[in-house]
């Protein structure tokens, strides 16, 4: 398994600071390449948002290089890997809350991460908040995560349709994230099979609100994104489109093609 990836991130047309963070790391183990990537959308004023999202990204990379590498060597199962990741995210949550308490500020971050482990043939995802993971094949687009927001809840419970959700005024109300004074919350995990010639896109809410699934399919499908250059051009074009459509938030998207 090999990967082609690119990303686009901007503070957007209105905000002065980019509170989104992202990372993509790869590693080689037993002749197989692993990939770990995430997008975090920070929440909180006075630079707390970017601190939170940056902190989580940094610690996740540390986990990948440390604990996770150790587990791979011990042939741990995906269940153990998930448990370790979960423990790490909860400890980040607790640390962030105690830091925010001390400083008297509010800080939090969404996180959506994907970890591809070819040795196990599985992809593990971790998710909290309203950033998203999309699976894009040449035939369709699928959202693999559930938005932890009031609007997302209403869509799932059937109160409103997805079209209505796009224009809903409560876009900014999160029900779950890392930090923000939340304790004892659970994050979403899933494992899935993956295949070559699939694209996976991680993005913050700023990226996807103003563009449709069709646009995502058209621009980010595997066949249109052979090289890193194609990817970068497509992502930046969509970011431009977002801003033209009046998106005020930070915009971040990360695209990985499996090959």
């Amino acid at each position: 398994m090999d990967y082609v990836f690119s990303y686009a991130t901007t503070e957007g047309a209105v905000r002065k600071v980019n509170q989104d963070s992202l990372f993509i790391v790869t590693a080689e183990y037993k002749n197989e390449k692993l990939l770990f990537a995430a997008v975090c959308d920070g929440v909180g004023g006075m630079s707390a948002g970017e601190t939170a999202s940056g902190f989580v990204c940094q610690r996740m990379v540390d986990w990948f290089e440390g604990d996770f590498a150790g587990m791979m060597r011990k042939n741990s199962s995906v269940l153990d890997i998930r448990a370790s990741l979960d423990e790490m995210l909860h400890s980040l949550n607790d640390r962030m809350n105690s830091y925010a308490d001390r400083k008297g500020i509010g800080m939090g971050t969404t996180v959506t991460a994907m970890l591809i482990i070819p040795q196990l043939g599985r992809m593990l995802t971790a998710h909290a908040g309203d950033s998203r993971l999309y699976k894009i094949t040449d035939s369709g687009v699928e959202v693999l995560t559930a938005d932890h927001s009031i609007v997302g809840q209403d869509v799932r419970s059937g109160k409103i349709t997805e079209e209505m959700a796009e224009n809903d005024s409560r876009q900014n109300q999160l029900t779950n994230c890392i930090g923000a004074g939340l304790t004892d919350t659970s994050y979403d995990y899933s494992i899935a099979d993956y295949d070559g010639n699939e694209c996976y896109m991680l993005c913050s809410d700023g990226f996807r609100k103003k563009i449709s699934k069709d646009e995502i399919l058209h621009d980010l499908c595997p066949s249109a994104n052979i090289s890193e250059k194609d990817m970068s051009a497509h992502l930046n074009a969509l970011v431009e489109k977002d801003m033209k459509c009046g998106e005020k938030d930070n915009i971040t998207a990360l695209l990985v093609r499996l090959c």
Binding site: K16, Q19, G45, G49, Q173
Partner: peptide, 27 residues
């Protein structure tokens, strides 16, 4: 609908936990 974090919030123009505008600004 907002957590009590706004003590030090001054900037209202980027993503924040709470609406930093305290007045009677209504949604």
């Amino acid at each position: 609908y907002v957590p009590p974090f706004q003590k030090n919030e001054q900037e209202s123009d980027h993503t924040i936990l709470v609406s930093a505008k305290k007045n009677t600004d209504c949604k």
